[in-house]
Amino acid sequence: MFSGIAVFYLYPVASTAYYSFTSWEVFGGASFTGLTNYRRLLEDTDVVRALVNTVVYTGIVLLGIPLGVVLAALISRPGLRFSGGYRVIFLMSYIAMPVAIALVWRQMFKGDYGVVNWFLSLIGVDGPFWLGTEWYALFAVSIVGLWIALGFNIIILAAGLRGIPKELYEASALDGAGRMTQFRHITVPLLTPSIFFVLVINVIAGFKLFDLLYILLEPTNPVMPETQSLVFLFYNESFVVNDKGYGATIAMLILVLIGIFTSLQFRWEKRWVHYVK
């Protein structure tokens, strides 16, 4: 086990770090080029755009958390019929193969005959060619990401809700608290550990954006350069353009960003997460 971890994980970290300082020839062989890749990284507008896209995507996916809290509270109401059935339905979006599901959404987002635009036309909105237009394409990808994350969020949040002691609701009801007051002052604060966990997972998953982009847009889509994510850029440089040195540099950038997020995460956790003693 440890040798496997060493060979497939520890050695690669060191190796990627080294590659990020090298330049690759077409016929193999790497030569040390110092900070050249990093200088290129700082000046590369594609990288900036991919970073912006990744952040925008993650931001939109995070809207699934408040939505998830409300839906989780609705399906966790005591005495609700088929509450198990709702959980099955919601979790389907998270379990189903993203590649296959993205193919379906691709049809739904088609500009001329897509069902999304047809629904929009019912309320008098003339929908755009989603997947062929800058920003709209990113928005469409984000909606699918939100839909997938929502299933996961609801399951985790519903599990968190079950951990809140019932006595708190009973006591507050005696004190005259209404449904909304209970939701704001008991449910939400005591759910913060679950909300926080979901937030962290959503952000980390958001930074992994690849499958949806690859399928919804196809690598050859003309708006791909304006819509791509950091991981897509990494894949493209490392395995399509085959510039593994620069690919490694992008991987290091992703590593640093995740590192910054992880250290911030611990700080935020202390500030607004309430743990039940």
């Binding site: 971890i5 060979v7 497939f8 994980y9 520890l10 050695y11 690669p12 970290v13 190796s15 990627t16 590659y19 930074f207 992994k208 991981v231 990494f234 490392s238 395995f239 593994k244 690919g247 490694a248 992008i250 991987a251 290091m252 992703i254 590593l255 995740i258 590192g259 992880t262």
Partner: peptide, 16 residues
Amino acid sequence: ILMVPPEVFMIPQYQI
């Protein structure tokens, strides 16, 4: 290793 994104492993894993 849990905190390292998978892309960081990928090029060397591919070579192996």
